[in-house]
């Protein structure tokens, strides 16, 4: 399970877990789970379009992810954020369906984007993923305080000179960036479950934001490592284990904190 072929998989999964753990913290904090769902899923339509015109699917993913992020940011300024997100998602998915209908022969390659190719990551994809991870995390470090402030009290942030809309757009672009490079590896479905499960679990287990980010990364790592190992041994899909583990961590954390609270209240 640590043979030459699998080593790339372990490295890629580790990188993706770190990115998802950090980005996921902010996604959960801002209540933006729907956006984190919409951007990678919609970007999938871009990959279909790229295959159709014969360019690298990654380019299509990137264009759609960034376009979706900017569209959600722009529409969200004028109306309800969730409606804007839903509109962007259905528009991108609709285009994806159209592109797919034209390109039957390549459909298999595109469908692999849904579930990723975690067991076949080529060496030359590792460096871009790592570079992207550093870029995402650096961007979030720069935006950290305004992101926190606009999440709790947007008017106060505005009154102190923070352009809340720009911070929001910057954040959406980070989610788009994270989706572009990680989706081909882990797939649309895994990316989403890795962003939400670990971060939500960490948030309910610890009170400090910094600890929550660290714990979110650790849980994401534990999730992908465990999922890879069990998938290798059982020959069942990695996606199944990543998704299930995410739900199990969160459910377990909730029960544990409720129990602990019950005990301190009675004792």
């Amino acid at each position: 399970m640590f043979s030459g072929f699998m080593v790339n998989t372990w490295i890629a999964a580790t990188l993706v877990a770190v990115i998802a753990g950090v980005v996921g913290f902010f996604v959960v904090l801002r209540g933006a789970a729907f956006v984190a769902h919409a951007i990678p899923h919609g970007a999938f339509g871009g990959a279909a379009g790229a295959v159709l015109i014969g360019v690298n699917p990654l380019a299509g993913l990137g264009v759609f992810a960034v376009g979706g992020a900017l569209g959600i940011g722009w529409l969200g300024r004028r109306g309800r954020h969730d409606v804007a997100t839903a509109l962007a998602l259905v528009l991108m998915l609709g285009l994806g369906a159209l592109f797919l209908s034209f390109s039957v022969e390549y459909a298999a390659a595109i469908y692999s984007l849904l579930f990723g190719e975690v067991l076949g990551v080529p060496s030359d994809e590792l460096l871009p993923i790592a570079g992207l991870g550093v870029a995402c995390i650096a961007a979030l470090a720069v935006l950290y305080r305004p992101l926190m402030l606009t999440s709790i009290a947007p008017e106060v942030a505005e009154a102190r000179g923070v352009r809340a809309q720009r911070i929001e757009t910057g954040f959406l672009l980070v989610v788009a960036l994270a989706a572009t490079m990680t989706v081909p590896v882990v797939g649309v479905l895994l990316m989403f479950s890795l962003m939400i499960g670990p971060a939500a679990t960490a948030g309910s287990l610890t009170r400090s934001p910094r600890n929550a980010i660290a714990l979110s990364v650790l849980i994401a790592l534990a999730t992908v490592w465990l999922a890879l190992a069990v998938s290798y041994l059982t020959n069942l899909p990695v996606g199944f284990f990543v998704g299930t583990l995410g739900a199990v961590w969160y459910g377990g954390a909730r029960i544990w904190t409720a129990r602990r609270r019950g005990r301190t209240a009675s004792g």
């Binding site: 305004p146 926190m148 000179g161 923070v162 309910s204 934001p209």
Partner: peptide, 25 residues
């Protein structure tokens, strides 16, 4: 304030000091 938010009272006060600044304190 969402009860699920991992945010302590001291974090909120700290953001009053420099929440508009970019970067990590």
């Amino acid at each position: 304030f969402d009860p699920d938010m991992p945010l302590r009272a001291r974090d909120v006060v700290g953001l009053g000091l420099d929440g508009h600044r970019l970067g990590i304190p």
